[in-house]
Design a protein around this nucleic acid. Structure first.
Lengths: 244, 244
DNA sequence: CGGTCCTTTGACACAGGTCAAGTAATGTGG
DNA sequence: CCACATTACTTGACCTGTGTCAAAGGACCG
């Protein structure tokens, strides 16, 4: 393991190149020595950026100058069609990587949902960094392969599931994700608006609203204060999500 | 660049660990020396497998023992819902990688569409290989990142596009992909059945059929023999696909 | 308080699904 | 090479889940 890969640990610098998510234990890297001058110099080109809610981080077709890791907050990633139709392709949280591409332009837009802190790194230099830090690349590959699997689940959701199945799948996924990040999984907290949920699930806000109302009436979920949802009958919800 | 990474070139062995697609030029690797005994021994665990049309390569939830590269033919990758609804998440062709996962089970099923040749490699050993061949991992990361972008396009298609927009996007994507692989892009050849197209686009065969008929009537496409489609008014088709 | 935005609810429309039948393509055995 | 079976594709009639449009609460905020 290269000395330099140790340097990108979470507590050494604002950039979480190694993110503290389920597969990536920040703790693993916390025992290493302080940075050398050479390493400090390289890391100096990283910057912490704070983003207010509803602020754009970058837009589709912008030149892809930076990659980011999210250190706090939530980001939505979306694409637009010519006439303004929107599809949200993912919600990213602390520990997630943003902006990785092999093209010269971003293929999607990214916007903060809540007050968000990012660490940014020039993409050109990251490519050089990747070349010399095999472990970083491994980690990125693991993250990409995880994203790929999640993407296939989402295609199944968008292509074949009913509105009810979509919403139930969504809250179950959010619950699992919260648990993996060490937050409570049962009253699920949904940071995003109805219209963001709709654009993520390929529905309209009206349909999402009606679906929630019906699930509530049927005693499958319970709406608590402050965008929290209790999963009242978990196994029934699981069956709905899997299409039985 | 490690000596070993040269050994996985296309002409040295049936396994295209390095695939001859747009970003990966098999030619790049053709000038290197013959394999050493050590390298030959490692490569001996690769096997060429021939698969007939409609034959399963592996199923969702099967233990993920192998990874594959496709050397000839076409493979469809799909997921099933509890009641049998199907979503095809991709069509893979020569040069594509199949079965990469960080879990112990495959997250989807794979089946040959036409007579197909695969090279398979035990996944456990691939992980070891990745650790010592940085260039292979870089290539995989590039492929994964390309797949990720394609997946987002597909989410937009499934979540927000009409049947007509979906079909037009589909044939344009197939056309581009054929061109990248050095085959003609204008009369597009669609190897898959209507029902596979439907399951890929989140539609029914009937809707696909009606959509094709209408596009034909409107002079936007022309159906030739043997599953070939001529893109008669390319710029109009492009506009439809982008939602204008 | 009064405005703005978000969410819910209702009435209705329509794209695409379902069911059914017909036609073309493909395969198969004699 | 031809009957015949089978599967793939197309077309029609009708239905339904979700979208559209409109309006009425609610929540938040200056």
């Amino acid at each position: 393991m290269s000395r330099f890969s140790l340097a990108v640990r979470a507590d050494a610098h604002p950039l979480h190149l190694v993110s503290p998510c389920d597969t990536c234990r920040a703790r693993e890297f916390s025992a290493c020595a302080p940075l050398t001058a050479e390493e400090q110099k390289r890391l100096a080109i990283m910057r912490t950026v704070n983003i207010a809610p509803r602020c754009s981080i970058f837009d589709e077709a912008d030149p892809a100058e930076y990659v980011y890791t999210i250190t706090a907050g939530t980001v939505k990633v979306y694409k637009l069609l010519g006439d303004g139709r929107r599809q949200i392709t993912g919600f990213l949280v602390a520990g997630d990587f943003l902006g990785l591409t092999h093209n010269e332009a971003y293929a999607y837009s990214a916007e903060a949902l809540v007050p968000t802190r990012l660490c940014r790194f020039p993409r050109r230099r990251l490519e050089a960094l990747l070349a010399e830090i095999p472990h970083l690349e491994q980690r990125l590959l693991a993250m990409a392969s995880h994203e790929l699997a999640a993407g296939q689940d989402q295609m199944m959701l968008l292509g074949r599931k009913s509105a009810r199945e979509r919403f139930v799948s969504f809250i179950l996924t959010m619950s699992d994700s919260a648990k993996r990040h060490g937050r409570p999984g049962d009253p699920v907290f949904l940071a995003m608006s109805r219209s963001d949920i709709a654009d993520y699930l390929g529905l309209t806000t009206e349909t999402v609203s009606r679906t929630v109302t019906l699930l509530k009436k049927q005693g499958l979920i319970e709406l608590l204060d402050d965008k929290q949802i209790r999963l009242s009958r978990l196994s029934a919800l699981r069956e709905i999500a899997e299409g039985f």
